[in-house]
Design a protein around this nucleic acid. Sequence first.
RNA 1: GGGCAGUUAGCUCAGCUGGUAGAGCACUCCCUUGACGUGGGAGUGGUCAGAGGUUCGAAUCCUCUACUGCCCACCA
Length: 810
Amino acid sequence: MLYKGPYDPNKTEPEILKFWQENNFYKPEYNPETDKIMSFEEMKKDSRPPFSIINPPPNAYDRPHIGNISGYAYQDLFGRYNRMKGKKVLLQPGKDHAGQEGEAVFIKNELKPKGKEKKDFTREEFYKATYEYNEKNMALALKDEIRVGLSADFDRNLFTLDPKIVDTVLDTFMQMYRDGMVYKGVRIINWSPGMQSAISDNDTARIEREAELIYIKYPLEEGKDFIEVATTRPETMLGDTAVVVDPNDKRYSKLIGKYAVLPLINRRIPIIANGKVNQEFGTGAVKLTPAHSNDDYYMTEEWNQLTEQLERKPDAKGRVITEALGYVPKSKIEYWKKIRKEVGKIPYINVIWKDLKMCGPIGKYKGMSIDEAKAEVRKDLEKLGLISKIEKIKQNLTICDRTKTVVEPMMSSQWFIDVNAKDFRQKAIEAIEKGLKNPEAEDAVRIHPSSMAEKALFWLNNLRDWPISRSIWWGYRIPVWYKGEPKEEINKEGQIVQTIGGVEIKNLIEDGKTEAEEKELIKVQVGSPGGGWVQDTDCLDTWFSSGQWPYATLTAGNLMDTFYPTDVMETAYDILEVWVCRMIMFSLYRTGKIPFKNVYLHGLIKAENGQKMSKSKGNVVSMDDIVNQYGADTLRLFYLVGNKAGAAYRVDWEKIKGNRNFLNKIWNASKFSLMNLEDFDPNEKIEITNEEDKKFIEEIKNLTKETTNHLEKFRPGLAAADIYDHFWHTFADIYIETAKPRLYTKDKEGKPINQEGESLKRRKSAQYTLWSSLKTYLQLLHPFIPFITEAIWQELPKQKGEKETIMYSK
RNA sequence: GGGCAGUUAGCUCAGCUGGUAGAGCACUCCCUUGACGUGGGAGUGGUCAGAGGUUCGAAUCCUCUACUGCCCACCA
């Protein structure tokens, strides 16, 4: 019998947890028919249809935050729902090492308080200490996952740096290398002076600040005229290699194809056109510094690639088709050809290096700091009378999100993934498009809500080659070995020169076959090739490993044949692009299959005032704040009821209390039902005599149908809201009240009633209705609020063959 | 600059395939003691941001406008 008084989750939930865990219900090996644990092989052969979810691994260094836990509520909902549908369910848990961030947190939380720094350790010591720190915290995280009732197979918990995972991840790197998809290339990167490392675009932020826009006159090669450019960074003019204008800008049309002479340096630089230049801004003419500006870099790339295609035969109208621009008119081709012939490719000239000092072919400015050079260049230009005006503007500046230092765009050799090779991204695009147009297709990835699919496609369509090296120690060290120390320097001409053991290397990696390989200076393999070989010092970007998480975990568990592709990827919408898209790309490349059939994106939880939760704002609500007071079921209801995919929602204590009240309502209505079912045997044949009973049973059937439909269509919030509402306001408020006169066995004076004849029949009819509807409610509710439903289920009279646990009831 | 959302009762938000506006909280009145006061009943309160269109019928579909939020980005 259920205990008296209000429902107390802190009493019930731990008992239920123990029951589930002792019976191994979370394992796909649990056999509900025999109530025994199958062997691994038996489980694989078991004919129940498989259902799997890979739990997104939270960062290992900390307890999961309230957002991670919300994910578990959804993942567990899908898992429990499918288990009750008779499927063989695997929820695969894990933890992420979180690369750059994991390293930063370890240093801040562990080393700093002890007065230590990273450089006090050798690389091996540091890695070991970080690993231990993460292992310790991972244990805490696991406790939280268990506490909220996540029915994942925790014996299978995996860490991204587990050797079994490492094997798969590094193997992918090597395979991609052989396929010509990873290369070490000199490209523009975001250099974070704070991190002393290249950082990805995702790790940058923008700030607005005041800046001086300086108008500089560049003398034209012919005549005494000038072309005027505007810049906030005069020091970078030392690395200018062209001036760019809008092709439709009439002011400059005559100058396109001519040359200017770079002041201070006297370099002859062409004037070219590119539609990305904005006529309105500054003078409408841009100085092109490809080595130190993202914009300029990509404009230069485009120019060089397009003009390279000029060899192609023109059509009858004299046009040439190019991959990027379609047909290029004859007028354009002429000046392209001229400049291409005269200067070849537009070069990159590096004038700033990682120590933030000036370098390259820049005369007296060499060795100055950026600020010194800025002042000096300005002074010298003024002397020459080449500065025409200075204007204050608001400028958007890129900063390093973690260290808040200003990002310095510069060129450096980094490992990259060619996102176009082997249709790496194209296949992902197709899978997502299929999810929109032909969702039933085998290889379609359906994204819920579907509007988010557009976001994913937008990202994929605009994706550039992905830099994957990071200057950190915490992570997968790049499995590349050099014969001697690799070095990177800027020479007198401002060109980056790479050497391995003193031997100069051009095109370190290209198309899988490289000069370095031919000279036996480089090897790509996991273990050391032997004495004299030096491993690359960088680690792989953390998304390189987490992007492989679904098949890496299942490969580690030897479960690919049984559970891949997985059924649902359930995660927060803010990592749709950086994580979900990458998983799709990797999986299609590596396994030829989609990693998951559905993506469900839950909303982000905001603080009470609607702001983002953050430690610095002090508005973080932890799982403990809610669970300790109201229990895990209440927290789960808060995540689920009425919420929709992709929408943000706020912590709302009134709603949370309301959910707690709902649990109490379930508890009391069940208590009432059980009291009136003490003499009821569901195995007896019972006739439903009353119209209202028939009607109510019919209603329950409809509710089941509707909520099932909601769940199948990935609308868990509506399903939860419907059951919540129906239980409370139809079952408890109406049905039970109307059935009371038929259920009572004594009247107000204490005389027996409903004990025989027709009135007894009516009572039995009500009992059956009460029993069967409560049973159905519990089953419908179980995926949302597993604890209380299990506790009541166990007290409910059973029909022959019915399960002890609601988890495997059908 | 581009992309994606949102704008519904005083507040926080639902509203799936178009069919007479919903919940919780708040507010007003009432009822309850043998499941539950963490309860029950009744009620107040909205021209569903604005304009136009499609339709027998639009909060729902289309177009435009305004505002808010998020993300991306190559204005020197």
